[in-house]
């Protein structure tokens, strides 16, 4: 088995207009910048993107939004040090926003990947974000029903990967990446190091290869914070 793909461009080439794409990362940590930039080069439009944030500066997710490729964003916190791209488009009515509490977002993705169509959480009960959702009482406490979330594609970033698709992560860059890997029909992982099957200790594999369809080697990946300090703009 060999899930490696030679370039990021090849890895994202079949993402069509209108696709739902989960993109890993929390801010810049764990964000698959090279895969996002390849998606910008490929140019599909009318995407629904699932990410914790809404981009920062003019690279990565912010650049994808700036190129007009994102019709709808599902996220918990669309603010950042430089949120201008998203903010201006949103206030002009140019992008749809679904705000989801961060833990509910993570659990919706986990549920989607685990074959669970809906679940109950205490989060958001009695708030505007629960409007229109079914509620129920369990053991004397009120809960809100939330739906599992799946995607057509997930773009994720990992530290090490083998040709079987097994992945390990680096520090807090793990965040949403392993959860999103489970919830997409096609999961594409950029990895800083490709190792041979057998070189990852099975005890330490975080994402088992069954959840991963394509592995792209991206040595020395770019970091959003550093690009933004350089005032980088993509493309």
């Amino acid at each position: 088995m060999d899930k490696t793909v030679t370039t990021a461009a090849q890895a994202v080439a079949d993402i069509p207009d209108g696709a739902c794409v989960m993109i890993g990362g929390f801010g810049g940590s764990g964000a698959p910048i090279e895969l996002i930039h390849a998606l910008i080069d490929a140019g599909p439009k009318n995407l629904t993107v699932v990410n914790n944030n809404a981009g920062n500066g003019h690279v990565g997710l912010a650049a994808l939004i700036e190129q007009g490729q994102v019709a709808k964003l599902i996220c918990s916190f669309p603010r950042s040090a430089d949120p201008k791209v998203f903010t201006e488009l949103y206030l002009a009515g140019g992008i749809e926003l679904e705000i989801v509490p961060q833990g509910t977002l993570a659990e919706r993705i986990r549920a989607g990947g685990a074959g669970i169509p809906a679940f109950y959480t205490p989060t958001s009960y009695g708030t505007d974000l629960a409007t229109g959702k079914p509620v129920a009482e369990f053991d004397g406490r009120m809960y809100v029903q939330e739906r599992g979330l799946k995607a057509d594609f997930a773009l994720i970033k990992a530290e090490r990967g083998d040709p079987m698709g097994n992945l390990t992560y680096r520090m807090a860059a793990r965040n949403f990446n392993p959860v999103m890997a489970t919830a997409a029909a096609v999961t594409i992982a950029q990895v800083s190091h490709v190792v041979a099957a057998g070189d990852l200790d099975p005890e330490n594999v975080i994402t088992p290869g069954i959840f991963v369809n394509r592995v792209v080697h991206v040595p020395n990946p770019q970091q959003e914070e550093i690009l933004n300090r350089q005032e980088a703009v993509y493309p």
Partner: peptide, 9 residues
């Protein structure tokens, strides 16, 4: 722009 993050959880 609304932004909730993890507060509600």
């Amino acid at each position: 722009v609304p932004a909730v993050g993890g507060a509600m959880d």
